[in-house]
Amino acid sequence: MSGEVCSVADPSPLSGKTDVRLSLVHLYADLMNLYGDRGNITALRRRCEWRGIDLELQEISLGERFTPRECDLFFFGGGQDREQVTVSRDLAGANGEAIIEAVSEGAGLLSVCGGYQLLCRYFRTSEGEDIPGVGLFDAYTVGGPTRFVGNVVAERLDGDEVRTLVGFENHSGRTHLGPGLQALGRVVVGHGNNGEDSSEGAVHRNAIGTYLHGPVLPKNPWLADRLIHAGLTRRYGTDAILETLDDSSEQRAHESVARTVRRAGNVRTSIR
């Protein structure tokens, strides 16, 4: 697949540019990679590749550092409790601050489940122990007595447009958002952040936190493109316009899940 890479309203430093590139940092890839998290990286890589964008992937693990100014996108996946504690300690230093700095400068970020929890203020385990978080999202998580496991359909109102999100959740943590923090969506089927207020995930600038895996990006390509857009805008300083891709396979997979789940699930009131 080739063609126009991406263009912006003229005059633009991006039009006709042939060596468009983005850098993606996969945080603690070797320790936080539950639930097919790699699929999110694959989705970003392919969707860049199909548009002729060169995506450079950098994997960061314990004790390794990165330069926030050079990072356009971040991905932070889910992990087991044991790994999460180890990673939390490493984040407490320079890496946590570097993530906050990059996001404040407009970098795109996707965090899923455990990664999402570690970017909130803290996680209080069911034993009452606090695992400190980065505090990128003004939210906290409390360990719950049961696990929320199952398919999820959520909706997001984007201007006038209703976007749907499909995915699978599997978490015992209940995340509560601070008053100023926007949710990623509203749960139609499933539990979302805490099973009480029907909120799912969080959005702060171009950083997204979510409990949805599945993985989330392949079946919700609009979310993947939103991240790519954020990354391009950050790197090239202008509002990028992404080339439209043939997403018919993505749409069919999205709709087939949404249909089955809505039929089987406990549907809350829809935005529609």
């Binding site: 097919g36 694959t42 699978f168």
Partner: peptide, 9 residues
């Protein structure tokens, strides 16, 4: 298994 996300691994 009701979660098929493993296909991406």
């Amino acid at each position: 298994g009701t979660d098929i996300s493993w296909l991406w691994d």
